[in-house]
Every structure is written in C-alpha cells, then in structure tokens.
Amino acid sequence: MIRAIWDNLKGLYSLLVGMKITLIFLFSPQKTVHYPRKTVERENLITYRGPLELTRGKTDPAVTRCISCQMCVKACPGHCLTVVKNPEKSVKAPIEWKYDFTLCCLCGACVETCPTSALAFSHRIYLVARTREELIFDLLADLKARVEETPVLPGEEGASAEAAQG
C-alpha cells in the first residue's frame, strides 16, 4: 500500500517533468523550413535518401567505380536497375546504367551489396518530374554532368590536393 502510494507520487512527479519539457519546447525556436520561401540547408540533407547516384571514381571522378558485377541488379526487390556490361571483356566499366526511380522503394539493398561502393543515395530533395519517363535516370550521364558542374566537392578539396601531391 505504502509502496503503491510512493510509486504513484513518483509517477506524478514524472508527469510534471514531462510538462516542463513541453513548456520549454513551447517557447523554443521552431525547426520548420517554410519550403517555397526557404530551402533546407545542405548539412541537414545528409540523412535524406533521394534517388540513387553513382559515386565518383577514385582516380578520375567522372569514371564510375562500377565493375558491372550485377550484384545490385540481383539484390534489387523492385527490379529497377539495368547494368549493361561492356562487350569487350577487358573493360569492367559498364556501358549503360539505367535506374527506374518509379519502381524504387529506397530500401538500400543495392547500396549495401555493391562490392566497390559505386552506389549511394543522393540528397536531391527538390526533385520534380512531369512524366514517368523523366524518372528513369541514366546514372552514367548523371555522374558525368555532376562532375562537370563541380569537379571537386567542397569538402574534399584538401584530400584531393594531398592525393595529387602524394
């Protein structure tokens, strides 16, 4: 009996703690980004899973790390990936890399299974398409375009300079 009363008093105290937290939150600044007027900053998008993209190559950023092993194609539950091998056996890089975003469930199985870390989720949060066809991406062309636009990523300047020196 005494124990039950004590437990209930402790419970009441914890309710007060909860109310204090919500009261503090009531007066703390908001986190909402009012979208059309403002956009989310880059560092807050790191955890956002947008459509897939091919990562930059180690030596030449414009050349994909993909070795056409087809692991991702097999792993994908939505059958959204098409990787076409180069008919010439000595070249491992694919000649075509198609990604159908309309079928993708963003599960990440492809990213996880890739032996060369050639795949990654992009952070393209403001993606708009008017037709289905626009959502079928050619990732090789996309990689090329990205590298042309920003040859060196902002965070990696020092690293690539070191690599060039070494």
Partner: peptide
C-alpha cells in the same frame, strides 16, 4: 498553434 509550438513547428500558418 500550441500543438505546433510544442512540436517545434509553426502550426496553422
């Protein structure tokens, strides 16, 4: 509004 502020969003805006 209170619900919004407590959850750190603006509520009706």
């Amino acid at each position: 509004k209170a619900a919004g502020f407590i959850q750190r969003r603006p509520g009706p805006y």
